[in-house]
Design a protein around this nucleic acid. Structure first.
Length: 314
DNA sequence: CACGCGTGGGT
DNA sequence: TACCCAAGCGT
């Protein structure tokens, strides 16, 4: 139901004077999201019956900032090769980084490797279902912990990612898009609309994400096929454009990230330690190149052998 | 909390 | 073509 001036949770979704002129808020029906998801969910590999909590955890690591289409084939290989945390933990970091391939942000691969070791040694090779225990694992933050609790263990748990934040910002708050993250308030917003039953709530959590990924998209939302269009505060407000501050789009060309990527690409492709000259060839600016190589060594993404050659970490 | 961290596809 | 963006995390 769309209402004037109604605020779920009483929280101010636009702190700091960024409040848009709209005054319409809405309560959206979890049942509609639930039924839409059951009918429209993508057939993703990690949603197949038989996927273990470990499989879910691996998918969530890979999906941190990497699109579904690129993750899917790599996930299949990882689960086939390392079906349990202990199997991954027994693998060298070099092999893990090579298997990570070009998913990006390779520090995630190291953290997943560390998390696997922690699960193997401290949790009996079983991925924890408790949010606090999950958050204690390296590379597992607010989102990933709750995603595993919900999707791997079917628990009622607010799962807030960029998709869900956008759906809530629009459908509930009537804004064009989500502003800067407000973790506590975002979790409370979603918690307020989840049904009580664990299994049903978990499906709704997946449905909210799927809705944001497929229908309530950032660029061209397909409101005409949206299951909650009749309740959507953004539609009721006339789809106002987002007014608040936007995080500046990160540049890439010329940044350390690009240089690190090129250096690491050389190390991944090499089947033996490489001399300095092989790395020097990928970037002209020597100072930047050296800084990046040093950073890779410090991050544990590269190592130097006794005879001065460079490799992926053992 | 704002920022840095890879990569490549869509528009 | 240049942007814009994609299931975040750690510091």
């Amino acid at each position: 139901m769309v209402r004037q001036g109604y605020r779920p949770n009483g929280a101010d979704p636009w702190p700091g004077g960024a409040r848009p002129s709209c005054t319409i808020y809405a309560v959206i029906s979890a049942a509609l999201v639930h039924d839409w998801f059951v009918a429209n969910a993508r057939d993703l590999p990690w949603r197949r019956p038989g996927t273990t909590p470990w499989g879910v955890l691996v998918s969530e690591f890979m999906l941190q900032q990497t699109p579904v289409a690129r993750v899917a084939p790599v996930w299949e290989q990882w689960i086939a090769e390392w079906p349990r945390p202990s199997a991954l933990a027994a693998t060298s970091r070099a092999d893990v980084l090579r298997a990570w391939g070009k998913l990006g942000y390779p520090r995630r691969a190291l953290r997943l490797h560390e998390a696997a070791a922690a699960i193997a040694t401290r949790h009996g090779d079983v991925v924890p279902s408790d949010v606090a225990e999950l958050e204690a694992l390296p590379g597992v933050g607010t989102y990933t912990a709750r995603a595993v609790a919900a999707f791997a263990y079917g628990r009622r748990c607010p799962v807030v990612d960029t998709n869900v934040r956008r759906v809530v910002a629009r459908a509930v708050h009537g804004a064009g898009d989500a502003g800067p993250a407000r973790v506590k308030a975002d979790l409370a917003d979603v918690d307020a609309l989840l049904p009580q039953d664990d299994a049903t709530a978990a499906v709704v959590s997946a449905g909210l994400m799927e809705l944001g990924a497929l229908v309530c998209t950032a660029r061209s939302p397909r409101c005409g096929v949206c299951p909650i269009q009749a309740e959507c505060a953004w539609l009721a407000n006339g789809k106002p454009e987002y007014q608040g501050p936007r995080r500046p789009v990160q540049t890439f060309a010329g940044t350390d990230r690009q240089v690190r990527g090129r250096l690491l690409d050389v190390l991944r492709a090499a089947d033996a330690p490489v001399p300095r000259e092989a790395l020097d060839a990928v970037w002209d600016d020597a100072a930047q190149r050296d800084r990046c190589l040093l950073a890779l060594l410090e991050d544990g993404l590269a190592e130097q052998t006794d005879d001065g050659l460079f490799t992926l970490p053992a």
